[in-house]
Design a binder for these strands. Structure first.
Lengths: 194, 194
DNA sequence: ACGAGAGTAGACAGACCTGTCTGGTATCGT
DNA sequence: ACGATACCAGACAGGTCTGTCTACTCTCGT
């Protein structure tokens, strides 16, 4: 298919295939619901390889969530590149979210979903903390560039909007909540820079 | 104990005991994680009684979620009784949420959690739709009483804030997000009634 | 040429889960 | 007094889950 991007057109390693399979299945159907057998079948990998690579299902889950964190980061940063005006970049976060929520496989925030499935104290909590901290930091940075007076307080507001928009996009399909959140962000941004 | 509220101080029926046990366990640990055996053990009820009463675990889950819906309704309405001014009643929703999020067992929105656990098309979706519709309707009503120009649009904003505050309260313990949401609602309410 | 490392296929153990069934007990209306 | 109804206790079947283990194959560096 499309395996001619680099001179080294090696086929993906077992680890990579496992991760993509886990990503697709865990995100689409939930972590408890998806068993090891389904993952190795989709990845075309032997069970022993999974356990020699990751050690346990929990560690595979952690790797899956860390991968989601990385994907979210790069996708958001890339999506924001098209905006130049600092204020547009703040509001752009909600536009990127809106696009994301419109894609077919969207099922809400992977970290929130993972934490909703019990497993308290598991890997889900740590990775969720990390990704939420990154998100808040991004908003702080964007707010500072946009001349907001109290960037930390404003970022806290934006995080609430982002979470709410994400939940709405999952629960009320089709949903306008990312657009609604963008509108609110606009008002709040005006209030915070006045 | 405290069973002397009414002349008929009968002990709770098997159905009631099952529902309270299911409520506590499902909400605290998730639906997949909690097995039938744990529920009947906590309820002090035979397995046959569970299946003759509810028919299946799925139906027990539906009853659990419907109970949560009822609890949420009455608790919110009761919490709002103390406010008289229509604007205070709008903002009061977030204060009630703040109190709720502060209670020890708080683990976020039961409906979102249930939907995050896979089971697509199960009972979780329908009940979640119902409770979200009720919530939006409540905001529409409160907004109209407060003299908001476009109550539907304003209610959509409030739902985003409510969802975001609820998620934040779950994920960032301790969290200020309900208070942050209240602050945002105040600004938006002023903007919507101007 | 050959040995090491990585991977494959699949059986297996042990635990847990939902749902059914049998059989016994208590309570209540008539 | 008695029959119906509700309930309890627990064994059981059939399935699924994670994780381990054995035995075979392929590929690559030296």
């Amino acid at each position: 298919m499309s395996a001619a991007s680099l001179p080294t057109a090696r086929k993906p390693s077992a680890r990579e295939r496992l991760l993509t399979a886990a990503d697709e299945l865990f995100y689409a159907e939930g972590i408890h619901t998806v068993g090891i057998d389904r993952i190795i079948e989709r990845a075309g990998v032997a069970k022993a390889s999974l356990y020699s690579t990751f050690g346990s299902k929990d560690e595979l889950v952690r790797a899956y969530l860390e991968g989601r964190h990385e994907i979210r980061r790069t996708r958001m940063l890339k999506g924001l590149e098209r905006y130049e005006d600092p204020r547009d970049r703040v509001l752009g976060v909600f536009e990127v979210l809106d696009e994301l929520a419109g894609t077919p496989g969207f099922r809400g925030c992977a970290f929130y979903n993972a934490n909703a499935e019990g497993t308290p104290g598991g890997p889900a909590l740590e990775v969720a903390d990390a990704t939420r901290a990154w998100m808040r930091g991004l908003f702080v940075e964007l707010a500072r560039d946009a001349g907001v007076k109290d960037p930390a307080a404003f970022a806290a507001q934006m995080v609430v909007l982002y979470d709410g928009a994400s939940v709405g996009a999952k629960m009320d399909r089709p949903s306008m909540s990312p657009k609604v959140a963008r509108g609110m962000a606009e008002i709040l941004l005006a209030a915070a820079t006045a």
